[in-house]
Amino acid sequence: METSIDPSFSNTSYETSAPVIRFDNVGMRYDQGPEVLRDLSFDLPRGSFQFLTGPSGAGKTSLLRLIYLAARPSSGRISFFGRDTATLSREELPHLRRRIGVVFQEFRLLNHLSVFDNAALPLRVAGKKRSDYAEDVAELLAWVGLGDKMKANPATLSGGEQQRVAIARAVVAQPEILIADEPTGNVDSEMAMRLLRLFVELNKLGTTIIFATHDLQLVRLLDAPVMSLAEGHVHIRAPRSQRQAEYQRAEDEAAAGHREAFEDIGRPPLDSPDGAERDE
C-alpha cells in the first residue's frame, strides 16, 4: 500500500551547510510548571526535512512554538541563521518571522476574511500590493484544491479545507523555514499524501521543513530524519537510507574483518540497533 516518494530529496544539502536552527541545551516550562522540554540539543541543517513525532502532550507544539518565536526557552540557547534569539529585539522579530511559515495545529484563520485574504495575509502585512500577489495567491489556492472557494468564509469550510487554507498562508510568502503542526491531522489519507507532496516540493526548492505528526504511516513514506519527543527529551533518528547505509557499511566492515576469522560463518554476528524497524 505504501507509495514511496523520491527517497533522495531530503539529502540534497544535508550535512553540508550551516544549520538554520540550532538548539543548545534548551529547556522550556510554562510559567512555574514542570519542564515540558528538557535539555534539547540539535541542529536543523538548511534545506532539511525533519519529522517531529511523539505522543500527545509530549511537547511537539511547545517545541515548534520555540522555533516560530512565540515562546522563549526557559534555559539554554536557540539560534536562527547563526543568530542567538535571546539577543533579538522586538523590532527585528517581524522580519525574522517573515522567513518562517507556520501551519498552526488549530489553524488560526481569521473568520472575517475570505479564504483568499487569509492566504494572502503574510504578503499583505509585509506591505505588498494586492495586484502584485493576487495571481500567485489564486494559483496557490487552486493548487491546494481551493480554487473555487477563494471567496468563502473559512468558518464555512471543512476542517481539511481550513487546514489547506492554513497551509497556503504558511507557504505563500515562500519562507525559508516551514513549520507544520499536524498539517494533515484533519484530512483523509489521500489528501494527506497530496499535502505531504506539497511539502516535499517546497523542500526541493530549498525550504527547511519541520513537520510534526502523529501519523507514522506518513513518516514512513519519506526517507527523512525523525525527531521524536518523549518525556521532554528528544531522540533524532537518521533517515532510513542513511541508517541502512551505515548498517551496510558496518556490516561490510564487520564482514571484512571477520571474514578471515570466520570464513566458514555465513552471517556476521552483528545485531542492528534498528533491526526492529528494518522490516517495516
Binding site: 473568520n111 476574511l113 483568499f116 485574504d117 494586492r130 489564486a138 487552486a142 477563494m150
Partner: peptide
Amino acid sequence: MSEFEIPPPPKGGAGALLPPD
C-alpha cells in the same frame, strides 16, 4: 493568467483586517 476568479479586494482597505464591530 489564472483560470480562477480572484476575489475583489475587501471594502475598508487595511481596516478590513479587523473584524467588523
